[in-house]
């Protein structure tokens, strides 16, 4: 294994993006809206494409705006379908985001005839390419740092409101805290984060990083602040472990398994998502083990 400056940038970008996703992810999870994160990260695709087609350039702002609007559209329309169609939340979200995702893929094909907007890149990301930059610090690193700082600031500033709106939205509303508005704010931030993360790591890692760090952290802490902290740690660890696995362990292991020696390294973003999953299942097993030993209700691993 050879570690270069590029590897450092890849891990750094992956870690910053993963942590940026983990923050809104924790609150989606606490709201029992994990599916919404999944839906938004798919549904922003047509928004990106329309933003691109309308503006005719890869200028970030129109694409960002399009994506955020598509994210909000998903949340609002699925809410309407849920109430009018009397179907459960998951089903109404499923209907909306699958249609939007398909539309997005078609639009990207159309757009791709004019410039390089590649569907594959949207799905898997281009972490390895995005960090190749003439600047001293790649643009993608600045970008993911900015969104991480934004999310951390918002989580700190609106901590109380996010907490009560997630735990008991009816009580929050009755006592004068607009839980509906807070949920919409969370939707916007999720859409924004998703779009920024898309470019570097692709939609698969975005979905993983919205949910898995938070879900793992729930096994580790009994307070919302604690869950937030541990979700950042898990996100960081997944990024580092994922890249290491992608460039060294996994190719060797797969080579041994298949008898092929020419596999090269694997997709880092993909392995980061896989590592997050591994971390979650290890923690889950550990918490079951801890519970069976202590014999009490909900045991924490720590």
């Amino acid at each position: 294994m050879i570690w270069t400056e590029l590897d450092t940038w890849i891990v750094l970008t992956g870690a910053l993006t993963a942590m940026a996703c983990a923050v809104p992810g924790v609150f989606l999870l606490l709201n029992k809206q994990s599916m919404l994160g999944d839906a938004i990260s798919h549904a922003v695709l047509p928004g990106l494409a329309i933003g691109f087609l309308v503006s005719g350039s890869r200028d970030s702002f129109p694409m960002l705006l399009g994506a955020v609007l598509a994210g909000l559209f998903t949340a609002v329309v699925s809410g309407v379908i849920e109430r009018r169609g009397r179907v459960e939340t998951g089903a109404s979200l499923g209907v909306v985001f699958c249609s939007l995702f398909a539309l997005g893929l078609i639009l990207i094909r159309i757009a791709a005839d004019h410039v390089d907007l590649d569907p594959g890149c949207v799905l898997y990301g281009a972490l390895e390419l995005a960090v190749i930059d003439s600047a001293a610090v790649p643009r993608i690193v600045w970008q993911s740092t900015a969104i991480l700082l934004l999310n951390l600031t918002l989580a700190a500033v609106f901590f109380k409101e996010l907490q009560v709106a997630a735990f008991d939205p009816r009580f929050a509303k009755a006592s004068g805290i607009p839980s509906g508005g807070i949920h919409h704010g969370l939707t916007v931030v999720t859409a924004l984060t998703t779009v920024v993360a898309f470019e570097s790591v692709g939609s698969i890692l975005v979905i993983a990083m919205l949910i898995v760090p938070g879900a793992s952290a729930m096994l580790l802490s009994r307070s919302v602040a604690g869950v937030l902290f541990w979700s950042l740690v898990v996100a960081l660890a997944s990024a580092l472990a994922g890249h290491l696995l992608a460039i060294s362990v996994a190719p060797e292991w797969l080579g041994w398994l298949t008898g092929r020696q020419d596999l090269g390294s694997l997709n880092s973003a993909g392995m980061m998502a896989a590592s997050a999953g591994l971390i979650f299942f290890s923690l889950l097993a550990a918490s079951h083990f801890a519970r069976s030993i202590s014999g009490r209700g909900r045991a924490s691993v720590l």
Binding site: L30, Q163, F167, D168, S175, G176, R222, V224, V227, R298
Partner: peptide
């Protein structure tokens, strides 16, 4: 609200929940 209307597995302490009455 009714006790059943919230998820009691939520990661907060009794004190955290009571403090919610002071948020406003």
């Amino acid at each position: 609200p009714q006790r059943e209307s919230v998820d009691w597995d939520f990661p907060v302490s009794a004190r955290d929940v009571v403090a919610m009455g002071l948020y406003k």
